[in-house]
């Protein structure tokens, strides 16, 4: 399993692996926001937590179609499915690799981009913490979506359509925690709910993803 994780990380960092693209996208989206809503710092401060969460979510979404599609195209997914690793474990590891290469950089970049959006001083801790707790769920749910659409041509758009509704609870609790934190309110409840969703998704969704992938491989 560590071999698979190592391989996926290595592939992401090699040329053409796409590492950093999600991060760059996150940056671009955040920069575009003031252009669209105006430079008023009071307005930006209010919407900053939501924009950062939405930006992170979209950046995550964009990188999902590479998650399994590359292994599908070159045939290594078939070989992995016949390897001694259970498919559930393969998919969990791939989710983890996706989170390490996409989710974690977003978490680290969010406070920096918060400066651009005039995020209130109290909000930095909570935006980082809520993203740290919430982005693993985005990767795991995204893996399910990627497994659903892996054999399809033009699966990318469909993938977004399928995954977005599944992201709703994560986005609501995550952004709510960040918003409350920025406004100096209590954040325990949304953070706990967010953590619950993440843990539940990590524990259960790989089984659904593996079931779906088996159907797609046959």
């Amino acid at each position: 399993m560590s071999a698979l994780l190592l391989r996926d990380l290595r592939l992401a960092f090699r040329a053409g692996g796409g590492f950093g693209l999600g991060l760059a996208f996150f940056l671009i989206v955040t920069v575009m926001v003031p252009f669209s809503v105006g430079p008023n710092s009071a307005t930006l401060a209010v919407i900053a937590p939501g924009v950062l969460w939405l930006g992170a979510l979209l950046a995550c979404l964009l990188s999902l179609d590479r998650l399994l599609a590359l292994d599908w195209e070159d045939g290594s997914l078939d070989l992995l499915a016949t390897a001694p690793l259970p498919l559930e474990a393969v998919l969990s590891v791939k989710s983890l690799a996706h989170w390490l290469t996409t989710g974690l950089p977003l978490v680290l970049a969010a406070p920096v981009l918060g400066v651009l959006l005039n995020l209130p001083a109290g909000g930095y801790l909570w935006i980082t913490l809520s993203l740290l707790i919430g982005t693993p769920a985005l990767s795991v749910i995204g893996t399910f979506g990627a497994a659903l659409t892996v054999g399809l041509k033009r699966g990318g758009l469909l993938l977004s359509l399928l995954v977005m509704p599944l992201y709703v609870p994560t986005l609501i609790f995550g952004a709510e925690a960040a918003r409350r934190g920025a406004a100096g309110m209590a954040v325990e409840t949304p953070l706990l709910m967010l953590g619950g969703i993440t843990l539940g998704a990590i524990a259960l969704l790989p089984f659904a993803s593996a079931a779906v992938l088996r159907v797609n491989l046959r």
């Binding site: 509704p165 709703v168 609870p169 609501i172 609790f173 709510e176 409840t189 949304p190």
Partner: peptide, 10 residues
């Protein structure tokens, strides 16, 4: 169902 609760909370 999760969304329903999330939205209620929100």
């Amino acid at each position: 169902v999760l969304s329903r609760y999330a939205v209620n909370f929100w």
